[in-house]
Design a protein around this nucleic acid. Structure first.
Length: 595
RNA sequence: GCGCCCGUAGUUCAAUGGAUAGAAUAUUGGAUUCCGGUUCCAACGAUUGGGGUUCGACUCCCCACGGGCGUACCA
């Protein structure tokens, strides 16, 4: 049992005996005592002041006395205003440390057959252009969230819905047909997703030129858009695709396979993966059935023009279109179809969608519709909504060509890591392969940590330079500290220092602070799972690293004469490095054994 | 117009309704020169504004201001 729980339960019993008040131990959350007061943990006593009919100070004194008499883990206490500061029995910390050191996979809970089945959807790219910075935040959040949910004892299925059909795909295909000269990723020497993206841009360029010509000839913008031969050709192609025209389908399959090969490379480098991938071309017709079913049940209604709608005004929302007057699906319909297939494949208990906050309204509606259509997880589906990523230079605009490509960005980060490491002399004496592996780990670690440490809901500014600093709240700083700890442990092993007698000495203040921080880890993980917050883990790991540095600063571990003290410190180092590795693992960030 | 989200040191980010709002970075001053240099200490500096709820509000409610997003046949 964790220290928090022990104190919470003891306090719960204390107020019951002293004042006859029932308080659930879970509602009592002891917090770390502020540095300027004596004590390890602090409990706020205001909640019981009324029932006790005494001053906050008196209540604190009474509970404190009860704890000293009845709870062995409590050594002494002091009361400041309504805050009860508890000093834990010093030898008790040895027990805590031993428990942490002896627990395999400390901080995580293993899933069982009965554990909830959570499906996490993330990434969800279009197949007409490469992944960009926005996808990077999405992918990292989705992957990390999945790892955190796993660590909290859930069964997790990571899924991706690929938007592989529609007018935008036809634009790329058409441009390739017209101006591609049979180019392939091999012949062009380009990743497939980039090649296709280039044709998408090319289409847009010619289309714009056409519009300019038509409007110059006296048409309005709207008329020109309708009359554009290119756009008409693209629409015709979409119709042929929907009619399963073999030639169009063949081209579509070929071009998509190029894109997938490119995406796979990007995902692999980023370190994210999926258990099950869905394609919109498989799901877009499914939603239609579900909607027609809803129409029969009276959940939807049909307008005179034949379009199908849902009336959500009773829930404070609007009327929502589900089938166009020509009978075709819209985005919402497809999501319903995807949900249907997923539920056929897996007995999902909970569904998490990692999708940008511009779709908040969409998911409000989707939740409501799925619920009305009888999906048991529809009502409390989670839209894990995140904000935009901006750069110091300003906003990304695809129209203005200021989109940051994911592959380019990773190259750039790794390149900077390589340079910085070389300047600092970190790569001296390493083979070229080792040096490159470290640059990769550090460059990606910097990117990932910077994007994950921020509250996902907020729009954020990604500063590449700042992210790769080896000082401060950055990935590289944490990786560096980890590598340094491992180095100390390696040297200790070489010198034959054992770490077996650690429980025999009472830790000093800095050591206690570190142990206490380590003891928090499991509750941080479960809280991160509850609130879907990778940022919580990131900031915890950073605090832990700082705590370790303060401990590390004033002790010479390898020169320590007293074997028991030395092994206590080695144990602390060992456990800290393990927690750092686990924590960073939950963020999808690798830590190097040396750097 | 309506709806949702956001607003915290110069900057980038923290703070389950709890004590004097924390870090990092930048700036300034000091310690350390060591198992791994990237360590440590200190100074400076902030809740957009106005009301309300309460023992206590960055946090919850109302109003104003500023920014983002969405707003019915795009995805």
């Amino acid at each position: 049992m964790s220290l928090d729980n022990i104190i919470a339960q003891a306090v719960s019993r204390a107020v019951k005996e002293l004042y006859g008040v029932d308080t659930a131990p879970e509602s009592i959350v002891p917090q770390a005592t502020r540095k300027e007061f004596e004590g390890n943990m602090t409990v706020v006593v205001f909640p019981w002041v009324k029932a006790a009919r005494k001053s906050p100070e008196q209540v604190g004194q009474e509970i404190g006395n009860w704890l000293v008499d009845n709870e062995p883990a409590v050594n002494r206490f002091n009361v400041v205003k309504g805050f009860l500061n508890i000093v834990i029995e010093p030898t008790y910390w040895n027990t805590v440390l031993r428990h942490i050191a002896d627990t395999a996979d400390y901080g995580t809970v293993k899933a069982t057959e009965e554990s909830p089945l959570v499906m996490v959807e993330y990434s969800s790219p279009n197949t007409n252009k490469p992944l960009h910075l926005g996808h990077v935040r999405n992918n990292l959040l989705g992957f990390s969230l999945s790892e955190i949910l796993k660590a909290c004892g859930n069964r997790v299925v990571k899924t991706n819905i690929v938007n592989d059909r529609g007018i935008h795909i036809c634009k790329s295909m058409l441009a390739w047909q017209k101006w591609g000269n049979g180019a392939t990723p091999e012949s062009a020497g380009k990743k497939g997703d980039h090649l296709i993206g280039d044709f998408y841009v090319l289409f847009d360029k010619h289309y714009k030129a056409e519009l300019a010509e038509l409007t110059a000839g006296g048409m309005s913008q709207e008329e020109a858009e309708k009359a554009s031969p290119l756009m008409q050709e693209a629409r015709a192609m979409l119709r042929r695709w929907e009619a399963k025209d073999p030639e169009v389908r063949k081209l579509w399959e070929t071009m998509n396979s190029w894109v997938y090969a490119g995406f796979d490379e990007t995902y692999r480098r980023m370190g994210v993966d999926f258990d099950k991938i869905y394609y919109e071309s498989d799901t877009y017709l499914e939603g239609k059935e579900k909607v027609l079913e809803g129409l029969e049940k009276g959940i939807m209604y049909r307008k005179d023009d034949g379009s199908v709608w849902a009336d959500l005004t009773d829930a404070g929302l609007d009327h929502k279109l589900l089938l166009r007057s020509d009978g075709t699906s819209v985005y919402m319909t497809q999501d319903i179809g995807t949900a249907k297939l997923r539920f056929q494949d897996y007995p999902i208990d909970k569904m998490v969608y990692v999708v940008g906050n511009e779709q908040n309204y969409h998911f409000q509606v989707l939740s409501l519709l799925l619920d009305r259509l009888g999906f048991r997880w529809g009502k409390d589906l989670v839209h894990f909504s995140y904000g935009m990523v901006e750069l110091p230079e300003g906003k990304m605009k695809s129209r203005e060509g200021t989109v940051v490509d994911a592959d380019d960005l990773m190259d750039e980060m790794v390149g900077t890591a390589r340079e910085v490491s070389r300047e600092l002399g970190k790569l001296d004496g390493l083979s070229a392969d080792e040096a490159e592996a470290i640059a990769e780990t550090v460059g990606l670690g910097a990117l990932k940590y910077f994007l994950l440490k921020v509250d996902p809901r907020k729009n954020m500014t990604f500063n590449p330079k700042e992210s790769i600093d080896f000082n401060g709240n950055t990935g590289p700083f944490i990786q560096y500290t980890y590598a340094r700890i491992r180095s100390v442990l390696r040297k200790a092993a070489e010198q034959g220092f054992a770490i077996s007698e650690y429980a025999t000495v009472v830790p000093n203040d800095k050591e206690i602070a570190l142990i206490q921080r380590l003891a928090d880890f499991p509750s941080v993980v479960s809280e991160a799972g509850r609130s879907y917050s990778p940022a919580l883990i990131a900031n915890y790991v950073y605090d832990l690293v700082k705590e370790y540095n303060q401990f590390y600063h004033d002790c010479s571990i390898l020169r320590e004469e007293d074997a028991a003290v030395r092994s206590l410190r080695l144990t602390l180092s060992d456990v800290t490095s393990r927690v750092i590795r686990t924590g960073m693992g939950l963020l999808g960030i690798n830590v190097p054994e040396r750097m």
